[in-house]
Amino acid sequence: MKILKNSILLVLLGFMTWMLFNLYKDYDSRDTLNDTARYYAEKGPDETGAANLVTSVVVTYRGLDTLGEVTILFLVSAIIGLLLKTENGTRKTAMRASSEFMITAAKLLIPMISLIGVYIFVNGHLTPGGGFQGGAILASTFILLLISISRNKIGHKVLELTEALSGLSFVLIGILGVILAAGFLDNKILGTGTFGSLLSAGAIPIIYSLIGLKVGAELSTIILELNQVQGKED
């Protein structure tokens, strides 16, 4: 019985391998950009003013995708909070008390790592990086905060407020683009400025900072929900 099952699995895997091998046989590397990418490369720096073309694609040309993605992350954090709801209402953490070294190192490191995260998402239109990366670094700061300093004092209130306000501002800036410029999430509601300076590219730095705050708050909410255990333990 077990041999039969394993042989069926092997046949299935062999079929999959054959299919992927055919895909690889037809694959040929490219040496020119296609039309869409050529449009982004030629018109993108003048239309959006952002030096990082990935940022201009993510925030302006395909900004609606980003809005949907942030919504998916919000739904994930809400569903995790719903599924892990404790029965008797009390929440406590599963961690032991942290040592003196941990607390001192965390007090030294948390401001620096937060500063790096903020730098990454403010400079998202000039250098590699942006809202998602900066938000992830803010969330890893939150992990460090959670395992070192305050084990029971961190509330949902701050995270919920940050997440709600940044999401609301994101949508409001998008609607302002409809009123003042060409369409939803258009970045020309502010002037594009000098190419390559910090205050350039219209609304892209503002939108990417809001995305960074929202992603950081959502990932932190997921980690906070997973950190708490049911109250009847211990």
Binding site: A41, V57, L73, V215, L226
Partner: peptide, 24 residues
Amino acid sequence: DPLPQALVLTAIVIGIGITGLMLT
């Protein structure tokens, strides 16, 4: 090409959400 990089950027962030949901 900047377009696949932007799509992968989106896909990585959604991937962590899906992983967290499955673990829950």
